[in-house]
């Protein structure tokens, strides 16, 4: 077993999952690949297994937050030291994993590294594109800008891409997220959550590609709900003096 784990949440990503797994294996050999099949109705799980990944299949669709948290619980139970989230739809380029890892390992007080599409991706000399390529809508860009502003204020540091799901965390972050992870649209809240627990976070510029299969879960009409829900959650979590942890999964789950 490797020391590191790549958590790949996938919901009906049969078209992209095998390529994603192969790319991670090629770009980051020291990472085990764990696909969290979030109640897919297609052959995502079988294809991922055939591609050599470990697969945890949720019995029904529980949403991205709970799926990713499942990966963190796995990492906690199996003793992985570092976990990186890589979307199963091909948006995240696994070639950035070594750069995230280098930053995480170099800065001892940094516990969470997020891949930002708005910072220049070093090495390529090419700035990340605003939004994710041509698929980005004006609403989404506005939403990301609002979140970036709010999260920057709350965490007292510049955060450019709080909605990015491309992130890497160390053992301390794994332990936190295994216990407490937001449910739907978790990315923004997770940063604030880490900050609440005094974990230092950092961004690294990455390239993001247009998704190669599936479709975005966030339509324009849903994005207003997304905005309000996350703003509520973030402000509530800022008001919590004692961070809330949920009862359950860890008390008896350790092997």
């Amino acid at each position: 077993m490797n020391r590191y784990l790549a958590i790949v949440p996938a919901h009906n990503e049969v078209g992209a999952i095998a390529a994603t797994i192969r790319e991670i294996n090629a770009a980051a050999r020291e990472f085990d690949v764990l696909v969290i099949d979030d109640g897919s109705t297609d052959d995502t799980a079988a294809v991922a297994l055939a591609a050599g990944a470990r697969v945890v299949s949720l019995p029904f669709n529980v949403g991205i937050g709970a799926a990713v948290q499942c990966g963190y619980i796995y990492a906690l139970m199996r003793g992985h030291e570092v976990a990186v989230q890589v979307d199963g739809d091909g948006q995240h380029d696994p070639r950035d994993i070594p750069r995230l890892l280098a930053v995480l390992n170099a800065e001892r007080d940094t516990h969470l590294v997020t891949g930002s599409r708005f910072l220049p991706a070093s090495g390529e000399g090419q700035a990340g594109q605003p939004g994710d390529g041509h698929r980005s809508t004006a609403y989404r860009r506005l939403g990301i800008a609002v979140f970036a502003r709010v999260v920057s204020l709350l965490t007292h540091q510049r955060v450019t891409d709080p909605t990015s799901g491309y992130r890497m965390t160390d053992r301390i972050g794994i332990e936190l997220f295994a216990r407490d992870y937001p449910s739907d649209y978790p990315e923004v809240e997770a940063i604030v959550l880490a900050h609440t627990y005094a974990l230092r976070t950092r961004e690294v510029g990455v390239r993001m590609r247009p998704r190669s299969s599936g479709r975005s879960k966030i339509s324009t009409s849903v994005s207003i709900y997304y905005l309000l829900k996350v703003l509520l959650a973030v402000s509530v979590s800022a008001l919590r003096t004692h961070p809330q942890t949920e009862p359950g999964p860890l008390s008896e789950a350790a092997p």
Binding site: I36, R54, V55, V56, S57, L58, P59, F60, V62, A66, Q69, C70, I73, Y74, M77, S183, E246, G248, P249, A253, P255
Partner: peptide
């Protein structure tokens, strides 16, 4: 919902194990 989520996660992890 919260309990349901925890059950689904535990079931999936046990299944894999």
């Amino acid at each position: 919902s919260e309990q349901n989520k925890i059950l689904a996660q535990r079931l999936a992890l046990l299944d894999e194990r």
